[in-house]
Design a protein around this nucleic acid. Structure first.
Lengths: 235, 235
DNA sequence: TGATTATTGTTAAATTATTAACATTGGTTT
DNA sequence: AAACCAATGTTAATAATTTAACAATAATCA
């Protein structure tokens, strides 16, 4: 019971068969959130490696680029059951693939930005040139200047179309960048019409029914945290 | 040694004197990062309470608004040494004050946004109407359309002015919202010229010397995390 | 007033996350 | 080939964070 038992439905008897790149752990349970976050970061870093024509990378190298420890990298990769083939580090391409098999869904998933103000446009911008199984397929807003135009690469629909578009485009994830006063109301609708995951950038904490995954991020909190630690350093 | 001993320089012998609102813990060491984050959130929620003319709030009430547990609230407040006066919950105004004494610096601290694209403007927008000891006093960019104009409430300076302005305005915190390719270079400068805290929104992990506090946030990671948990729910 | 309830502050336990330790395994060097 | 080295995968230990448990105390009520 050293192996955290919530991770696997079946438990390994000895050790993993070597030499096979066993992302055959179909029966793996949910990974810790922190690990998922890091996997996403690993992949992005690995893609940079590909650009640099690096085809292999050591755990300590990958770790250094992300300012974490090599053990952490190795441990995370252990959790997803990836083993390096050679002793000359991880096969970059293969690892990108493996991570994809773990964190991406099989078919791609559609995403919408709700509220296409500055932050919404920034988010939309981040999607550009991003391969990945996530497609930004729509944005929503009520500003007549925006509605029915393509903004930052996505068509903007009025809020009144939200039900129709969620269903028509099979949108599963919403990124919420609306003014605070509007956050609760539009979330309630989005969820009602089938949204299964929300990334909330507003300052309003949201309530979602179980079965809907909610991730919240608050800039002000981050800034105040920085300020606090700057202050503490000084004293 | 039940009381995490990194928290206090001196250790309490029995329990805190009751009835005094003892934010007299001048000798308190750094709080856990997670607690600092929550304190910021508590304060924001408490400010909303004031708007609603609520002058007292129970721990479970505050907790519910933030979707955390009441124990967590009480524990955090214990760490900053705040006690409710009555048994009718926490005095909202007083608690706002106490939190301020802990997480704010005495004199206000100046902040700049580096890179005033969509995300930079979004961040700037968040500062509007925010009381607090943090003042957004400048932004930097090289776009001739932006330089020397006031954007989202702050004057934009060219990157060449960064040394001068950091010193002139005593800027201590930088919010980094530049294109990825430029992130490392400008960070190096900012740090050299006296920046002590950085909130990095670019996708490039940064290196900073010790003595500089770095907080990184990556939207793509958050989105991929949401996607992962949505997928897992479904399977 | 005495019993009951609601809420707190605090200690202790449980959980989660990170780091250290180390045996193992190819590769490299002499 | 023997000795050494570099890097991995894994278990064990440590640290951080959250949750539970509970005694203490004010408010309420019968």
């Amino acid at each position: 019971m050293m192996m955290p038992d919530y991770l696997f439905q079946t438990v390994f008897t000895t050790r993993l068969p070597k030499k096979t790149n066993n992302y055959n752990l179909k029966n793996m349970m949910k990974l810790p959130g922190k690990t998922v976050e890091r996997l996403s970061e690993y992949r992005r870093t690995l893609l940079e490696c590909l650009n640099e024509k690096r085809n292999f990378i050591f755990s300590h190298d990958l770790a250094a680029r992300l300012h974490i420890t090599a053990v952490q990298v190795r441990r995370d990769l252990m959790l997803i059951g990836y083993s390096s083939v050679l002793r000359k580090g991880y096969d970059v391409r293969e690892l990108i693939d493996t991570i994809g098999k773990i964190i991406d869904s099989e078919e791609s998933m559609n995403v919408a930005v709700i509220g296409i103000g500055n932050l919404g446009r920034a988010v939309a911008g981040y999607f550009k040139g991003k391969r990945s199984k996530l497609n930004l397929v729509a944005s929503f807003d009520n500003d007549p200047q925006k509605v029915n135009r393509v903004i930052s690469g996505v068509k903007c629909y009025p809020y009144t179309d939200i039900e129709r578009m969620i269903k028509e485009l099979d949108i599963r994830i919403a990124i919420l960048t609306v003014p605070p006063d509007f956050a609760r109301e539009i979330t309630e609708e989005a969820v009602r019409f089938g949204i299964k995951g929300i990334l909330n950038f507003t300052t309003i904490p949201l309530n979602v029914p179980s079965g809907v995954y909610l991730e919240e991020y608050d800039m002000i909190t981050s800034i105040e945290k920085v300020a606090y630690f700057v202050k503490e350093n000084k004293i």
